[in-house]
Design a binder for these strands. Structure first.
Length: 886
RNA sequence: GCGGGGGUGCCGGAGUGGUCAAACGGGCUAGGUUGAGGGCCUAGUGGCUUAGUGCCUGCGCGGGUUCAAACCCCGUCCCCCGCACCA
């Protein structure tokens, strides 16, 4: 077996030495920016699941590079984050140590995979050279009013010991800790005003043609735009008003109560000093603090209470009782709702439970509702009733009318609401980008001046305890001077969410060493947008929203000219083993080292790209890998052992060009598995030939180069080519060189050979003494008859077997077979085809008859070309007779 | 409940109106090669049938459109992923 380890080392070394994959801006060339989501460098290193993800991008990058594009294909590390910090706490060390060790290991492994990154552009977000620009962007956000600090109820993960953004809370659990319930704290925290971009983020989704529908749908739902109306009601005995948001202003006359979210600040004020105060406080505590996420489950029992106050309907003057309830959310809309039990299921359940009246204002088309007999809300459409001037209207038509109606009466207007909330970026952790803020007793909140950036994390600092944010314990960091007045002041000890780092890293790759700016706008204009972004779907409502937001912000800052970071998002599938996702925590990882040692890394690459389409989940199969290994061995033997001829081999080249055509299309559309099947077909075909034309062999090597680059380089060199196949031009297929008839005729020969086998099997059963076979490859069916006549003139033939696969002739076979069995003495088969093919078929005869205890003899004669048969067949005439004696 | 994806041979997976359902790989069976082999080569691998290139069946289930359906339409069951009282 070839020494794949040596081959890999040799070529990885040469690529590195030649800086083969380094790119620079070249205005004359078309760019192609291919990017995989940069990884968190975990201490456990890479396994086959990672390998698959990177290979998907690498194949594409190599393909595009060979196609002449100026390919930007970089790698970097999302190197701030909790695991390194936790490891440091445990070891009383510094997270930088763990992080940089992990990065070194990642790089070594990624190089070992043969990934064609431009390593000169590598970045790591924990370096001051990188995170100073996080801080710079933060200051710009602050300047534009998009970064702000506010006190609010926030999500707290007790495991991470820090707050989380809404996007990082999944079904009440921390995104990193499936088991950990997120708690609630009331804290003062930094936010980014992503909601300012809600409308644009939503509209922009329509332009993301190359994103999958489900990711787009998830983003739409996450942003959650709804149109409706805001209505406000004066509260009796108080100067205050209660303002609500509703998407169903048409149900206005059906309102029988109003509900506040329990944590709404007005609630306490309204009950202060009343007999409801104690009970209200207890209810709030229960709902808000104990029940924060449970309460939002759909099947949660609706609970609430009357708070002793009434509002007045500004139109009808009716008294409307005010409630608080667990199903009303403070964060959405105005934190208060109108309740129309007749036409909303939640309101209905609540009204039934607490004995609140129900008032119908919309009737279904076919009957009238009776409030006393309703057992659920009617949420459908219909004609308005009990609604004053709106009576008789269709409720849908009435919705826009109501907005005008409220405006006329000065109690409301049409508005739009979003579910998207501002992005909480503060984290109470050490290993993140420091927020560049100083607190001064005299000057208040003071931004660190740009010239003082970066605010560096302390280096020599050793963790002493696992309690709280370690940064708070570091006096040398905390104590500083106020940038404005120079008096002693304290630094902000919160660091930024690591999703801030990853929101713009793709821009830094365009200009990774820039010390003046986060990136040169000219360079970004050259490379951006990302042509193909590869990563998991799990970031649909996290990173994939944030990086769009940053792109738009940096555009508004004048640094970018694009509206979206990428129009093409490719979501790769997961690698499974034993039916579950391959991961260290599941204990089912297959290590890169193990596979590389057993089969070589090209085998791993090949297998990972071959088994399933890259977008699909696939199962790792230890046994099946061996199949890929066998194939690569075969190709290696083909490339190094087979006789190579310069002569044209039309059949080989026909197949090669067909393969080039298909493989090119398949790679372009990420159908790698199909591309590899085509490659296997052509390779297997060539391997079965006596010799192989140089052109065909080179073509095969070129087609394989993106998938198995080391093997391809080795063979490329062996054939006698200079330079690297990795940067050789991708082969262009030439349709005129694909001789379909020739390919078809070869395929027919194979089938004829199979037929001969079948016939011989039967002969064996019938024990003939002596037979003669003439093979008829009648791929021009109409020739069979002519040939038969022709042959009967000159030969002693008793039967022609038209050994073709088409149905019409196949029907004759049983008859012929019976004739053969009954009278096996002289059964002729005739074969027509190109001369070379006939030779091949003839050469195959001994092997075909082997094992039958027969002596085989092949006789060849030429059928009269002068009769025009050959011309009609588009092939050289010939016949092949087999004389078999037992 | 809503949204998205999917149900094809022993397995991983192709094929999305017809000329060929199961490409390609794995597994299994038989034969060959070999001193030997977890190597290589060849053939077979839905059912029926003495045999066949024949017949039947067949792409979750039930209907439908069509000369023609794994593929299009309707209904239904199951699996996976996301979102889930957002007024």
């Amino acid at each position: 077996m070839p020494n794949y380890t040596a081959i890999e080392r040799k070529w990885q070394g040469r690529w590195e030495e030649a800086k083969l994959f380094r790119v620079t801006e070249d205005p004359k060339r078309t760019t192609c920016y291919i990017l995989e989501m940069y990884p968190y460098p975990s201490g456990s290193g890479l396994h086959m699941g990672h390998a698959r993800n990177y290979c998907i991008g690498d194949v594409y990058a190599r393909f595009k590079r060979m196609n002449g594009f100026n390919v930007l294909y970089p790698m970097g590390y999302d190197s701030f984050g909790l695991p390194a910090e936790n490891a440091a706490i445990k070891a009383k060390s510094h997270p930088q140590r763990f992080t940089e060790e992990a990065i070194r290991r990642f790089i070594r492994q990624q190089k070992g995979l043969g990934l064609s990154y431009d390593w000169d552009r590598m970045i790591a977000s924990h370096t001051p050279e990188y995170y100073r620009w996080d801080q710079w962007i933060f200051l710009k956000m602050l300047e534009k009013g998009l970064a702000y600090k506010k006190r609010s109820v926030v999500n707290w993960c007790p495991e991470c010991q820090t707050v989380l953004a809404n996007e990082q809370v999944h079904a009440g659990k921390c995104w990193r800790h499936e088991e950990t319930d997120v708690e609630v704290k009331d804290l003062e925290q930094w936010f980014f005003r992503i909601t300012d971009y809600a409308e644009e983020l939503l509209d922009g989704i329509g332009t993301l043609d190359g994103w999958s529908d489900d990711v787009k749908t998830m983003q739409r739902n996450w942003i959650g735009r709804s149109e409706g109306a805001e209505i406000s009601f004066p509260i009796e005995g108080s100067g205050k008003r209660i303002t609500v948001f509703t998407t169903r202003p048409d149900t206005f006359f059906g309102i029988t109560f109003l509900v506040y979210a329990p944590e709404h600040p007005d609630v306490l004020e309204l009950v202060r000093g009343t007999k409801y105060e104690t009970q209200t406080k207890a209810f709030i505590r229960k709902v808000v603090l104990e029940d924060r996420f449970l309460r939002t489950a759909e099947d949660r029992e609706k609970e609430g209470m009357f708070i002793g106050r009434y509002a007045t309907n500004p139109i009808t003057g009716e008294r409307i009782p005010l409630y608080i309830a667990n199903f009303v959310l403070h964060e959405y809309g105005t934190g208060a709702i109108i309740a129309v039990p007749a036409h909303d299921e939640r309101d209905f359940q609540f009204a039934k439970k607490y004995g609140i009246p129900i008032k119908v204002v919309i009737n279904p088309p076919d009957f009238d509702l009776d409030e006393k007999r309703m057992n659920r809300a009617y949420v459908g459409d219909g004609a308005m009733v009990n609604s004053g001037e709106f009576d008789g209207m269709n409720n849908r038509d009435a919705i826009p009318e109501f907005a005008r109606f409220f405006e006329k009466h000065g109690c409301g207007k049409a508005t739009v609401q979003y579910k998207l909330r501002d992005w909480l970026i503060s984290r109470q952790r050490f290993w993140g980008c420091p927020i560049p803020i100083v607190y001064c007793d005299a000057c208040g909140i003071v931004p660190v001046p740009e010239k003082d950036l970066p605010v560096r994390l302390p280096d020599g600092f050793a963790f002493t305890s696992g309690k709280g944010n370690p940064l708070e314990q570091c006096e040398s960091f905390v104590k500083t001077a106020c940038p404005t007045c120079g008096r002693p002041a304290r630094r902000e000890t919160d660091t930024m969410d690591t999703f801030v780092d990853s929101s713009w890293y793709f821009l830094r790759y365009c200009d990774p060493a820039n010390a003046e700016m986060p990136f040169d706008p000219k360079k970004a204009a050259y490379w951006m947008p990302i042509d193909t972004y590869i990563g998991g779907k799990e970031h649909a409502t996290m990173h994939l929203i944030y990086f769009r937001f940053f792109t738009k912000f940096l555009r508004d800052l004048g640094l970018l000219r694009i509206d979206e970071p990428t129009k093409n998002l490719f979501n790769q599938g997961m690698l499974h083993k034993g039916g579950v996702v391959m991961s260290k925590s599941k204990g089912n990882v297959v290590s890169q080292e193990e596979i590389a040692a057993r089969f070589g890394i090209d085998t791993a690459r090949f297998f990972l790209m071959f088994v399933a389409g890259p977008e699909k989940d696939m199962e790792w199969d230890d046994q099946a890998v061996a199949g890929s290994y066998r194939f690569l061995n075969k190709v290696h033997a083909l490339g190094t052992g087979k006789k190579v001829v310069t002569a044209s081999r039309p059949a080989q080249l026909s197949r090669l060009h067909a393969a080039i055509r298909d493989v090119t299309a398949d790679i372009s559309s990420f159908r790698y598995n199909i591309a590899l099947i085509r490659i296997m077909e052509i390779a297997n075909y060539l391997a079965a030939q006596e010799d192989v034309s140089r052109e065909a062999l080179e073509g095969l090597v070129l087609l394989m180069a993106p998938f198995t680059p080391h093997l391809a380089e080795e063979l490329w060199e062996h054939i006698g080519n200079k330079g690297f196949v990795s940067v050789a031009p991708w082969p262009k297929h030439d349709e005129t060189r694909i001789d379909k008839a020739l390919i078809a005729s070869e395929d027919y020969i194979k089938r004829v050979q199979a037929d001969v086998r079948s016939v011989l099997e039967i002969i064996k059963a019938g024990s003939p003494k002596r037979i003669t076979l003439i093979v008829a490859d009648a791929w021009k069916h109409d020739l069979v008859g002519k040939v038969r006549v022709k042959l009967e003139e000159t030969h002693d033939v008793s039967k022609i077997i038209p050994a073709v696969m088409d149905k019409a002739h196949a029907k004759e076979i049983p008859k012929i077979v019976s004739a053969l069995v009954k009278n096996p003495s002289r059964i002729p088969l005739v074969m027509l085809g190109a001369e070379g093919e006939l030779k091949a078929a003839k050469a195959a005869i001994p092997s075909l008859t082997r094992g039958f205890g027969c002596e085989a003899q092949a006789l060849t004669e030429t059928v009269a070309a002068k009769k025009g048969i050959a011309k009609a067949a588009g092939a050289m005439p010939g016949k092949c007779a087999i004389h078999v004696e037992k």
